[in-house]
Each structure stands twice: as structure tokens, then as C-alpha cells.
Amino acid sequence: MPAWLVKLLFLPVEASSIAAEVDALHATIITVTMVSSLAVFAATGWMVLRFRRRAPNVTTPHIVAKRSHEAGIALALLFLFCAFWVVGFRQYLTIEQPPDDARTVFVTARQWMWKFSYADGRSAEDVLVVPRGAAIKLAMTSRDVIHAFYVPAFRIKQDVVPGRYTTAWFRAEKAGTYPILCAEYCGTDHSAMRGEVRVLEPVDYARWLDDPSRDRSGEQDLVSRGRDVAVRRACVTCHSVGAGTTTTGPSWAGLYDSYVELRGGTRVLADEAYLTRSMMDPNADIVSGYQPVMPTYAGTLDASETAALVEYIESLREPRDPGVALPKVRAVETSSDGGTP
């Protein structure tokens, strides 16, 4: 689509292989929308002038609609709308079905960050690096509530649902950096759950792949960042992180994935959502035997700090299987190259 039209419609840059097609349909339908509503406005306006009431108590003719006219208009509209649907649905199918040569990146969403795991076992937070021109398939799941992976520049959006994998794919066609947004409301810091896609030229991408330091990308891993946050925000003055010591708040050791007994006898599973909720609204679940003295950290902890803290508390569970646990790929998937770049 011509650049001036993209600008006129306030659309983001068309950075993926499907963006131009989608925008063309967009422009067509929006034009029809504008023309039809203005036509109705103009028609009513003209008739108000032309047929304005000149005398009270006049009679008007009874103009009866011809059935054939009514049916004709209805069918013509149905045809027009169905045409929109045919084009739109074909595009939808293209966007939904990843090509066979797509490389897989695993995406884990949680309140409030994105984690991207590459097939070679390395991972990064909030930054997805891809080569220009290659089809990238995202296999996405959430650890707590529903999020939605949205890259406006690619015109794709897919809800990320806990308990199952959903997929999305794209082929970036312009090198550059594009924002990733969460489009499904997911709690206090929903709007701060942002990431970015870095689309590199194939040469730069190869260089990036070989960079031995990219595992950390100059940043700490999430668990140690969480540990720092716990110290900096003085969480550890009330919560112990080792076994045995009783302090003002419940211990974090072995907390994750255990059942917690609340005041009044209710028991809840200490999952990701529970941990986040306890930081944002501590009085929602008072653990039995403790006083409601913890202040809310909503507004104090930013989105990435919250996610890092949760990751840190998770790391304090009884050790089961350490290391990055990539989900099991089904047989159908292993036959492909598994997404190894």
C-alpha cells in the first residue's frame, strides 16, 4: 500500500510479509464505510431540504417498497459483505498457518514480561531477535493469566493462554526494532508488559548468533535479578528464603507450587498468579498465622521487577529438574529442524 495512505490511516510501518495485503483490505473497507455513512448523511440532508414541511397537516403518498427491490438490495449487500469475508478469511488462514520452513521460538508470557526461548536452549527476556526474511513460528504459552502477543508493525495478534500452546508466525521484511505489546488485559501492569522484536539483516543475525555473550545479552538472568530486587525492596527483611526461620511473613522456601492455608481455612495453590496477587494486593489472601501488615507493592514494583521476583521465588522450590526446561515437542514437530537457526 502506498506510504501516504499508511500515514493517513495512522497505521504503523508495514514490516511483515502480510502487512501490505491486510492494509489493502483495511483501506478498501474503510473507504466503503466512509462513503456509505456520508452518503446516508447526504441523502437525509438533501431530503430534509427538498421535502421540508411547507404546510401543516398535509397528506403524503404511500410508497410501497417493491419486494424485488428489497431483495435485490439485501442480496447485493450480502454479496459485498461476503466478498470482504472471503478476502479477509483467506488472509486469516495464511496468518494462522505457519509455513513448513518456519523456525520455532518458544514464548512464555507471565505478569508482566515476555520470555523468548530459542531452540538451541538459550533464552532472553522481552527481546526477540530474528533475521529478516525468515519465517518465525512462535509457540506460546502463559504461566498465569491470558496475555496476547501483539506486534502492530506485523499486523499479528494471538492470545497466549495458560495450559496450552497457541501459535503465531511472521516473516519480517524490514530490519528494525518494533514494539511487542500485550493486548489482553492481564492486571495492574498490563500496559507495562512490553517487549521488542529486533529484526536483523541475515549477516548481522549470524554475527549475533555467534556472540558467546548473547545468553545474558549484557543483563543478569531473571533469578539473580529477582534476588537483587528482593534485597533492594527489603522483601527479605520479612520473608526468609531459607528453611526454618520464622519472620514477619511466610517463608519463600518451598512456597511455590505448594498449598497455602489462609485465614478461615481456605487453601490455595501458590502458583504464579498467587505470588503476583500477594505483591499487588497483600490483604486479598492472608496466610493463616500471619498479620495483615504487608503494604501493597502495586506502583512500587515495576512490571519486570514483579516478574523477576516471581521467578526468584519459583527458584526456591524444592529442586526437581534444574536447567531450562523446554516443553516437550510432539512427534510431528521433531521431524522438522526444530527451529535451530
Partner: peptide, 14 residues
């Protein structure tokens, strides 16, 4: 069919 098995579910029991 989902491309992957979901991550290990939480236990469904106490």
C-alpha cells in the same frame, strides 16, 4: 492439535 505438550500442569490434588 497443539504443536507442543503444555508445560507440566499443577497437581490436581492436595
Amino acid at each position: 492439535p497443539a504443536p507442543l505438550d503444555p508445560p507440566e500442569p499443577h497437581p490436581t490434588h492436595v
